[in-house]
Amino acid sequence: MNFDWPFFWHYLLRPSTAYLNGLMLTLVLSVVAQTLGTALGLFAALGRMSRMAPLRLAMRGYIWIMRGTPLLVQIVFIYTGLAAGGIYRFEDVSLGILTIPGNVQAGLVALSLNEAAYMAEIIRAGISSVDPGQTEAAKSVGMTYALLMRRIVLPQAARFVVPPLGNEFNAMLKNTTLVSVIGVPELLLTTETLTSATFRVFELYSVVALYYLTLTTLWGVVQSRIELRFGEPSQQAKAGSGFGERFFGSVLSGAVRKKA
């Protein structure tokens, strides 16, 4: 085996500034896209259940398209396709000392819109899991739909949404690699640039794989903690089995999770 161990250790343990910037961008993209995606997903979920037919159909169409096309295609479409078609071009936006490049904006938009479609289905499933009796009781004390959703149903739906949401963030951390194709200097593109300069593919890809593994593993720990806090007393007892619990949990929510 031809593996330059000193090279590997150097890049693993002493990341350059460019590498750390790439890592930071990956994290920022993941967190912002997941947050926006969840918020938009809530709107889409509620819209999908609306009594107003145009809104309901529009949301179903949106969810169908975003879940039915590959994320990579969406990213290139939104950044390059729209610009090439003269429809919209993402320009750099300057906010004081910080400039947000056009491709980063486009990457965020694509990741968020895509995530929102998946979150919409997850949230819809979560809302359906809440006992309908809760809605009936809320109605019978005079609550309007909006009030009962906000005060009674959504808070209880959160319990069902948290585990799949955790899995979605795991996927998001890895999906950010796809925006490398529009030139966003996140962790993978930074690695690829380094590879082309040094030709050490095996070592550098091993390093970046370990970085992603570390990120997703750390998130996994956080995720278990959050699930414990949100769980019912019965779930909290089960959560003690740790790894096994997380495996079965992710198998059940696997249906709504996409591959990265």
């Binding site: 006992d131 009796g133 809760q134 009936e136 009781a137 809320a138 019978s140 004390v141 009674i152 209880q156």
Partner: peptide, 11 residues
């Protein structure tokens, strides 16, 4: 006011 068979208290 309505009282249900299964109570339907806000959990």
């Amino acid at each position: 006011g309505m009282v249900f068979q299964r109570f339907n208290l806000f959990q």
